[in-house]
Design a protein around this nucleic acid. Structure first.
Lengths: 116, 116
DNA sequence: AATAGTGTGTAGTATGTAGTACACATGACA
DNA sequence: TGTCATGTGTACTACATACTACACACTATT
């Protein structure tokens, strides 16, 4: 699934309930030109900036990490976390690359409940 | 410490032992113009591309994740790992943001020796 | 029948990224 | 004392990113 298709789908589903989710009105609310949003939704332009994707995610009530991933981008705040301890997190991520989802989830929970 | 200062330092230390680590010769070996490397080492240009940083790291025997971090960049292979499961890794990283180093190291070892 | 709102095509722009090319002054050294 | 290598200043370039501006055709509404 591409970012554009996903966004158009999400917006149109929203629109069935709420008439204010036209392309033009959403474009107005997130602060871009309608023609540009149109091209985004049809994947006729490279993915927009992180900021614009975030505003779209917020507007459409979607997960911004997921939308950013569809755009091939990693959220700036995650990058900042890695950049503070690059070698440590590099090791961790490479270790977890092929780990199954449930193993990572276990780690997440362990850390959340961890007592250091 | 900036990337430029760090690189100049690393190269000049190297040079004391090996005369071939002049700015010009290193530039030649990593495939950039001497004038450009000069500017990089004096932080007079924005950090070079990931590829160029990697070649520098290799040439000077430095950790590329560390050099990339000084350049404000996250290694492309780490980004690829995150992009495959963005929500999972987003949760994990945000959980670990303020965890002490030793806790993360523990996780790394746990995962390495893990039996799933 | 007029008007308002909708999505889209085309063209253009500002800024950032990632460098090259060439000239120049200085110092080593044979 | 010539020449060779070294680091650096200036100017320029190609491509990518992230959009805007305007015009147009179609649809729905009143």
């Amino acid at each position: 699934m591409t970012l554009g298709r996903y966004l158009r789908n999400a917006r149109e589903r929203r629109r069935e309930r709420d008439r204010t989710y036209s392309l033009r009105q959403v474009a107005l609310r997130i602060g871009v030109e309608p023609a540009y949003l149109s091209k985004i939704e049809r994947d006729q332009v490279p993915p927009p900036s992180e900021g614009t994707i975030r505003r779209l995610a917020c507007e459409l009530d979607e997960d911004s990490d997921l939308l950013l991933a569809m755009a091939g981008k990693v959220s700036g705040d995650l990058q900042a976390i890695i950049l503070q301890r690059p070698q440590l997190f590099a090791d961790l991520l490479r270790q977890l690359k092929d780990a199954p989802d449930h193993a990572i989830l276990t780690v997440v929970r362990e850390v959340r409940d961890g007592d250091w």
